[in-house]
């Protein structure tokens, strides 16, 4: 059957669109940047809420 199933699923070896930080250093670095931005947003939101409350 090879690596392609007959029911229309994508090949097993195909590169998934989902970000996998454990697949390569480049993806791990991209994930690191996302976490950095996410943490910054969380900190800003929490500090803003604390300032208002």
């Amino acid at each position: 059957m090879g690596d392609r199933l007959h029911d229309g699923l994508r090949p097993l070896g195909a590169r998934a669109a989902v970000l996998n930080p454990l697949r390569s250093e480049a993806e791990a670095f991209r994930f690191f940047l996302y976490v950095l931005v996410g943490a910054a947003v969380v900190v800003v939101v929490v500090l803003a809420v604390r300032a208002v409350a």
């Binding site: 930080p21 454990l22 390569s24 250093e25 994930f31 690191f32 976490v35 900190v43």
Partner: peptide
């Protein structure tokens, strides 16, 4: 030999972002 330590190093940095945010900042 550079790629695998690189993945690990980014993991260490990601964990520090979370540790620093929760322990020191919030």
């Amino acid at each position: 030999g550079v790629e695998v330590p690189g993945i690990y190093w980014h993991f260490v940095d990601v964990m520090w972002v979370i540790v620093f945010t929760t322990v020191y900042v919030l």
